[in-house]
Write a protein that binds this DNA or RNA. Sequence first.
DNA 1: TGTTATAATGTAAACGCTTTCATGATAAAA
DNA 2: TTTTATCATGAAAGCGTTTACATTATAACA
Lengths: 337, 337
Amino acid sequence: MSNLKDVASLAAVSIATVSRVINNSSLVDPKTRVKVQNAIKKLNFHPNRVARRLSKLRMKEGNGKIIGLVLPDINNPFYVDVLRGVEDYALKHEYVVITCNFGQDESREKLYLNILQSESIDGLVVVPVLGLEEKVSKMVESGLPIVCVDRELTGTDVDVVLVDNRKGAYEAVQHLIRLGHKRIAFISGLPQIPTSVERLNGYRDALHANKIPLDEKLVKYGDSMYESGLRLSEELLKSEPPPTALFTGNNLITLGALEMIHRSGFSIPKDIALVGFDDMHWSISLNPPLTAVRQPGYDIGKRATELLFQRSGDLKRPTAKVIFNAELKIRNSCGSA
Amino acid sequence: MSNLKDVASLAAVSIATVSRVINNSSLVDPKTRVKVQNAIKKLNFHPNRVARRLSKLRMKEGNGKIIGLVLPDINNPFYVDVLRGVEDYALKHEYVVITCNFGQDESREKLYLNILQSESIDGLVVVPVLGLEEKVSKMVESGLPIVCVDRELTGTDVDVVLVDNRKGAYEAVQHLIRLGHKRIAFISGLPQIPTSVERLNGYRDALHANKIPLDEKLVKYGDSMYESGLRLSEELLKSEPPPTALFTGNNLITLGALEMIHRSGFSIPKDIALVGFDDMHWSISLNPPLTAVRQPGYDIGKRATELLFQRSGDLKRPTAKVIFNAELKIRNSCGSA
DNA sequence: TGTTATAATGTAAACGCTTTCATGATAAAA
DNA sequence: TTTTATCATGAAAGCGTTTACATTATAACA
């Protein structure tokens, strides 16, 4: 790989001049510019981004063209969508992204966060799940541009991109009610998770708005994982009388519920209606196609990155909070009560 | 952020000594070592990876602790599994990965590949899809450690991790035959893609081994995408008589077929049996649960990265070709003919 | 013509690290 | 005691950039 010096000597100029042309400085004579450009082409020179990053570090300029993305669970298609949005927007600006998938492993947290800092990233898009909040707050305060996604950070002023979970859930339940359902069950995720409580609120509010009394036996609290969907939907299905409709709190829970419903010999939507929070690209291939609340993951990721770049440019601008609407995709899993 | 110099002056030693302790050099007095370690702790010092990478560049040592991963389509859950495998193995060695998702956009290719090179990555795990092969070959020859995944690179000697597509397909079709099916259709991906032809070969071989004549009208060629599954399965379903079983060439095709089968009022497995190439974590939630050929994406990614690290350590070791078996996950989508 | 302002270029320091090489300290051997 | 080998440390160069600063060439003006 060639470097500035090679280009400089081939073009018979100094490395400073070469640097100026690759950075589009106006302080270079047109003739010199083409001379240098020819040399660059001939050597197939591409500036070394590592050196540039190190150099930029001195000016605290924050355009080393690399950002981090920390995600709780890449198996969740919603986060894959976020990733795509982040990556696309970043690449458009020639930024590269280091994706950090936490999975369930707690010990990765500090390791990854430390690594990201020593990679001198320009910024971070992060889903601040439980246990991460404190560290993220600290990083925000240290001056690293950060935008949060999917969840807010309590007590710290930071850019955030969310979806209106309450409204999304409200509309899902409203849809069920409109179809005539009254015994509508809800399988919630962990009640410590803000998104869970918002969705629960949406469920409650819809019931209340339609003067349907809330039956606490119809709401189950799990840990947002597949197994919880399996187990809690089983409880629900076995209750007497079983609910006529089920609203599941996220896509993993939906999966578990789906499996249990089939296993138990219930038919959708004849025996039970189903609406899931989170749409997936294969929802339409289900039999029947699943009615679901769609979170615009791609747009969220994209917008978050946009916000991040803005902040890099202006650390002092007031923080923004952008809220996307979730969209109810009505398909055929609900029928009527 | 503190740096070597800060630590050095706090510990009253030179930066060289500090560098030695963070690199576990044996050439440092135990007493000095603890002195330095205390200083490190007190300052919460973490070495800057960018600087280290730049420095290592001089020794061509190839442990800047960063690798690239280039994937054709992150929406495909198989590649998400690969990503997880790569990331886990990398992180265990404190490596970080830059994930490059190509999507369908051709213009991203050279951009991303160039960026990766100027990031001075230590190596690359890559799915060498059509159009990428030439560039990847060139990079291999330039001396960058590379391991290919899912597909081989014709004409270039390189490490590769594959699954036995032929055998996987063979077993899927064999399963169908054992169940009594004779009119087994196959929806293939692009015939230019090696994996497609291997799967097709498996299909053919199984038929042949069971003395079932190959009916060319039962094999359809698409572009491996969702829409092709939709369209080609429709053709198949409308043919007279329709096949009793369908084997789909990848998970996207399966999705399309699933949708079309439901739309057409066919019932699985009563009217038509279905086996998909590629298992997905939600296959079990389908009604009925889908019988599918599972590619061990996670292990593939992990093994590929292991191979990559080995190669970084020894550029001259002979190339390896590791082949994983695909596993037929038998569930309930096949019935009997 | 000589000044002076301006544009174009070059020089060198800095980013934070690793490592070679030189040097100093300590211990073992003579 | 001196010599020599060994261990511990420090000084400094180098990785490939960017940019502040210094310098030189060019143009504008008196």
